[in-house]
Design a protein around this nucleic acid. Structure first.
Lengths: 339, 339
DNA sequence: TGATACCTCTGATTCGTATTAGTAATACAT
DNA sequence: ATGTATTACTAATACGAATCAGAGGTATCA
C-alpha cells in the first residue's frame, strides 16, 4: 500500500522522537548511559526506531570508520558449485557456526565475478571487501598480487589454507598435511611396505609442497627410498613399472589420480589393497577411499575465530598462523604388502 | 614494511596529478570522454592512480548511491546444517547464481540466532535485515507476525515457498505442488490404480494444503475416491488396513513417512512397486524414490530476480507471486497395480 | 551573588565519492 | 565589440552516521 517508502535514517528517528540526530546516534549505539541521556529519552528514541524500522546504514558506518559486525567470505570461484563436488560446503558450515557464536553476519561476495567466472578482490580498482570488517578468503587462487595488495592496505583477512607470499605477512589457517602424510608413510612402513611411491600432478603450490615434505620426512623416518612421480597420467604401463620396481603402496595427491590408478590396476587384474595399498591425500567427499580427513569444519571455525581476534585488536593482524591436525585414513584400501 | 600508510583517496590522486577531486572521479569512472577531459589529463590521472595504488572506497560509493547492492538471505534455521539433509543448498545455488548475474552481494544473517537455534528477524524490536536493500526469506517458519510486520514496514522481501498471511501482501516464489500432485494421481489412474491413498503428517501449512488440493483434483479428474490419512505412524497394521481397502498406490507427503511405509511393507513380505506404488511428494535428496522434483535452483533464482525487480521499482513491492512447475517423478517405485 | 559543576542535549564537522552547477579561457561568428 | 559555443575544468554539496566542542539550563557551593 505505502509503496516505495524510503529507508529510515537517524534524522527521521530524531524528528519522530523530538531529539537531535546526534542523540539518536548515541542511543542506538548504546552510549546512552555514558552520555548521560535519561532513560525516558532513550525509550522514546527506541520506540521511534521500532516504529520506523530503522537500521543503521552499513555504508555510512564504515565510511565513518566503524564496525558493522559483518564478516566477508570471498571465494575465488562460485561458492555454491553446481556440480556435487562441493568443496566449500564444509568450510562454510564451520564459518557459519563460528559467526553465529560471535554474533557476526556474513557477506558472500558474489558481485565481483568477471566473465570467466573468476572472482577478483579488486574490480574497477575498488576493493569491495572493505564493506565487511574483515574477510575470510577461501579457495585455490594462483595470483598473489591481489593478496599482497590487500595485506599492504592493512585490510584484516584470514586465508583458509596455508599461503605464503614473499615479502608479505598473511594470516592463515591450514591443515597439517605434512605431519599426516608423514604418519601415513610410517603406518605403511609398519605394515611392512618397503617401497612407498608418491604421485602428484604437475601443479606446485604450498599445500602440495607440505605433503611432499611430509612424504620425504616419513621416508627418512622409516629408512625408505623416496619414490616421487610427477604425472597426470597413471596408466597400466605406470603400474607395470611401479610393480617391477617393487612398489607396494602409493600415496596419490588427489582423487582423480587415485581413480586412474585403481582403473589401471584393474586392467592388470589387480586390486587395492590386496595388490597395492592406495592412500589419497585430498578428496572431495572422503567416501570409499583411504584418505586424509581434511578438518574443513574446524578450519572454517578457526579462520573466523582468528579473524575476530584480529578485529578485536589482540595480535598482529598479518602474522597469525594456525595448523590443524588432519584425520588419518581408514583402512579400506590399506593392507600389508603382498608377501 | 611501509607500515600504516593510509589508503589513498581521490583527493590524494588529485593532488599528485594536479587536478581536482571531481576530475579524478570522472576519470576513474570512465566518464572522461563524455565529460570532455583530454586524453593527456586522463593519462596523468591514471598514472597517479597507479602510483598511489588507489582503490575506490565502496562504503563512500554506496553511501552516495543510496543503495549498497546487498541482498539479505534470512533462514529460520542454520543455513548450512550439520547433517547431510541439506535442505537449503540447492536454493542457495540458485540465489547465488542470480546475485552474480545481477551484481549483488549476499548477506547471510547469522547474528540473529537465539539460544534455541531459531533465527528471528527482529531482535530487541529492531530489524537487522534492513541493512540489506532487500531480502530473500527461506525456510519453514510457523509464526507469521514477523512477516506481517516486515511487510507493514514496507521492507522489500521475497519469500521462497508460497506464503499467505491474512491482511498482508507477501511476495513469494513457490513450487506448483498442486498441479504436479494432480498429474501424479492422473498417471497412477492411467496405470490402472483405482484406489490411491494420500498420507500426510499432522502439520498444516500452505504447501501441504496445495498438495492436498492437487490430490483431490486428481481424484476428481479420474473419478477416484479420496482416501486421505493424517498420521505420523505408518505401521504394518496400517498396511494391512490399506491393503484390505484395496489401496494399490500411496502418495506420501514426506520421506520419513515413505520410509516407514516401505519398512512396513517389507515386514509384511511386500515391496514397492510390485505390491504398492509409492510416490513421495517432498524429499531432501531425490535419490531412490519416485518423488516430485522441487525446482529449488529455479526458485532461488526466481526469488532474487523478483527481488531485484522490486528494488528497481517496477511492480508493486508486496504483491508478486510466481509459481514454478515441479518435475514429475521417475518410475522407480511406480508400477501398475498387482492385478 | 557569583562561580562551578553537572545534566541533557545540539550544531557543526568529518569520512570519500558522485554529481550538479558554474567558471575561466579561448575560438568563432556577427 | 559583442554574443555564443566549446573546452577543460573546479567549487560546492549530498549521501548517513559518529563525534567533538560546546550551549543552555539547573543545582550546589563559597
Amino acid at each position: 500500500m505505502e509503496g516505495q517508502r524510503r529507508r529510515a535514517r537517524q534524522a527521521d528517528v530524531a524528528r519522530l522522537a523530538g531529539v537531535s540526530q546526534a542523540t539518536v546516534s548515541a542511543v542506538v549505539n548504546g552510549r546512552g548511559p555514558e552520555t548521560g541521556i535519561p532513560e525516558q529519552t532513550v525509550q522514546r528514541v527506541l520506540e521511534a526506531v521500532r516504529q520506523l524500522g530503522y537500521a543503521a546504514n552499513p555504508a555510512a558506518r564504515s565510511l565513518r570508520g566503524k564496525r558493522n559486525r559483518l564478516l566477508g567470505v570471498h571465494t575465488f570461484e562460485s561458492i555454491f558449485p553446481v556440480d556435487q563436488l562441493d568443496f566449500y560446503h564444509e568450510f562454510l558450515v564451520g564459518i557459519e557456526q563460528q559467526a553465529v557464536a560471535d554474533g557476526y553476519d556474513l557477506v558472500l561476495f558474489a558481485s565481483t565475478e568477471d566473465l570467466d567466472g573468476r572472482r577478483r578482490i579488486y574490480t574497477d580498482g575498488m576493493n569491495r571487501l572493505a564493506l565487511a570488517d574483515g574477510s575470510v578468503l577461501l579457495g585455490v587462487e594462483p595470483g598473489s598480487t591481489e593478496l599482497a595488495r590487500l595485506a599492504a592496505e592493512g585490510y584484516p583477512f584470514v586465508h583458509i589454507g596455508r599461503r605464503t607470499v614473499p615479502g608479505t605477512e598473511i594470516s592463515w589457517v591450514g591443515a597439517d598435511y605434512a605431519s599426516a602424510t608423514r604418519e601415513v608413510v610410517g603406518r605403511l612402513a609398519a605394515l611392512g611396505h618397503r617401497r612407498v611411491a608418491y604421485v602428484t600432478g604437475p601443479d606446485r603450490m604450498e599445500v602440495f609442497l607440505d605433503k611432499e615434505a611430509g612424504y620425504r620426512a616419513g621416508c627418512a623416518d622409516a629408512g625408505l627410498p623416496e619414490l616421487m612421480y610427477v604425472t597426470s597420467q597413471l596408466d597400466p604401463a605406470w603400474v607395470d613399472a611401479a610393480h617391477a620396481g617393487g612398489v607396494t603402496a602409493v600415496l596419490a595427491e588427489n582423487e582423480p589420480l587415485a581413480r586412474q590408478l585403481v582403473a589401471a590396476l584393474a586392467e592388470r587384474g589387480m586390486a587395492a589393497p590386496a595388490d597395492m595399498s592406495v592412500v589419497v591425500l585430498v578428496t572431495m567427499t572422503e567416501s570409499g577411499w583411504s584418505s586424509l580427513r581434511i578438518p574443513r569444519n574446524e578450519m572454517g571455525r578457526g579462520a573466523v575465530k582468528m579473524l575476530t581476534r584480529i578485529l578485536a585488536g589482540s595480535g598482529d593482524p598479518g602474522d597469525q598462523h594456525h595448523l590443524l591436525p588432519c584425520g588419518l585414513p581408514d583402512d579400506h584400501m590399506i593392507g600389508p604388502p603382498r608377501s
